[in-house]
């Protein structure tokens, strides 16, 4: 057992290094005073300073966050209703085809989704900008939300629904008092998945930004194309730290919830 875990440890470390090395390389050079990543000159916060003095970039960051929040919010609402609908379809063949249609959207390449939206919007005379990107983000986030919620719906014991009707609940009450509370974890994880998908989407967004509006990933791409600026390294570092904070926050939140439950039980036992 011990020997095996040693091998596992080495393997795990290797994988982690391969995965995280590029990011740490990037972070390392964000503190270099030079202009390129060929060698480290001296430690400086200059690039971070430049970032803060770039109002265009800050606007883009805020736009991106707003876009992601709105897109995942709408996608969660539409996806929840969609999952509820798919779940209640009785005919297996119909349910499976609906589910497949949902999954196709998920696995089809972003480029194709982006291109098709571009064709649709230009055909319909819809001007490209914030709203076109928002609509496309909602579209590709809905299937994710559906997939996160469906298993939770399947988990619900059907006799719980019977019991609710038995106690006099209307259809609406069964939904609001029983089904929605039970699938809330699925709705939340669907929301967060949609949020991350929307935040880091590049391909679809690239097709649909048009002029005047851009998101962070598209901006970084276009700046990187013009030549590496270490400002991007600084920005990437901040984003990395931000997502790290999110993960840690999520961890402590779930720990807190668990502890509260355990404490409640302990309290009752001692009482």
């Amino acid at each position: 057992m011990k020997k095996k875990s040693k091998f596992e440890l080495i393997y795990l470390t290797l994988v982690m290094i391969v995965l995280y090395f590029p990011i740490f390389y990037l972070i390392y050079f964000s503190f270099s005073s030079g202009d390129s990543m060929s060698y480290f000159e001296s430690f400086t916060f200059d690039h971070y300073q430049a970032l803060l003095n770039d109002p265009r970039l800050i606007r883009i960051v805020l736009d991106t966050i707003l876009l992601a929040l709105l897109a995942s919010l709408f996608a969660t609402m539409i996806g929840t209703l969609g999952a509820l609908y798919i779940h209640q379809v009785k005919k297996k063949s119909v349910r499976n085809s609906l589910l497949s249609l949902n999954n196709i959207l998920l696995v089809s390449p972003d480029v194709i989704i982006g291109a098709s939206f571009l064709i649709l919007f230009t055909f319909a005379g819809f001007s490209l900008g914030f709203y076109s990107v928002l609509l496309s983000h909602i579209a590709f986030c809905v299937p994710i939300v559906v997939l996160m919620i469906l298993p939770k719906l399947k988990e619900i014991n059907p006799t719980l629904i019977d019991a609710a009707y038995d106690l006099g609940a209307s259809k609406y009450k069964v939904l609001s008092a029983i089904i929605l509370p039970l699938i809330t974890p699925g709705i939340l994880s669907g929301f967060f998945m949609a949020l991350t998908y929307s935040l880091d989407d590049f391909a679809v967004t690239f097709f649909l930004t048009g002029q005047g509006f851009t998101t962070l990933s598209v901006e970084i791409f276009s700046r990187a194309r013009r030549g590496i600026s270490l400002e991007i390294n600084a920005l990437s570092t901040l984003m990395f730290l931000f997502s790290l904070l999110l993960v840690i926050g999520y961890y402590f939140l779930s720990r807190y919830n668990q502890n509260r439950k355990i404490n409640n039980q302990k309290k009752k036992v001692t009482k």
């Binding site: 014991n157 006799t159 719980l160 019977d162 019991a163 038995d166 106690l167 006099g168 609940a169 029983i178």
Partner: peptide
């Protein structure tokens, strides 16, 4: 939901 009967389920079906 309009019937004047109530059921105790085999698996209890507590929420």
């Amino acid at each position: 939901n309009q019937r004047k009967v109530n059921t105790v389920f085999q698996d209890y079906a507590l929420f």
